[in-house]
Amino acid sequence: MKTREGAEELIVLTDVVLITCIVQRGAAEQAVQAARRAGAQGATIFYARGSGVRQKHLGVLGVTVSAEKEVIYIVAASDQADRVFDKIFTAAKLDTPGMGMIYMTPLEKMATYVPKEIIDRFVGD
């Protein structure tokens, strides 16, 4: 964006957290839907492989847990984050061993498109 003086300018958002959730391949869609209902604005999903200690100790039931995983990245506002976190936890059934895990990390800043109305309202000259 150009300011009146012509210098480069961009809007940096703070109070942002990153919620990362690792689930079995095919289970991400459910988790993302729950996150959206809880107010998350978007999600990035990618494929990965990996296994944890609980799924190794499941015995024969361990075959139901594949090493193919999906990783979900959700960047959320810190006010919403706890709610999104809880909803994903229940939707992805993470209280069952082998289902995956979720964690939350604070982000220093993020930047993306911000609607003009919001800029006009909150960013003073």
Binding site: G26, A27, L61, V63, T64, K93, T96, P97, G98, M99
Partner: peptide
């Protein structure tokens, strides 16, 4: 419940 959750999608 856990067994069901693991087995059903599998």
């Amino acid at each position: 419940r856990d067994a069901y959750r693991l087995l059903a999608p599998y």
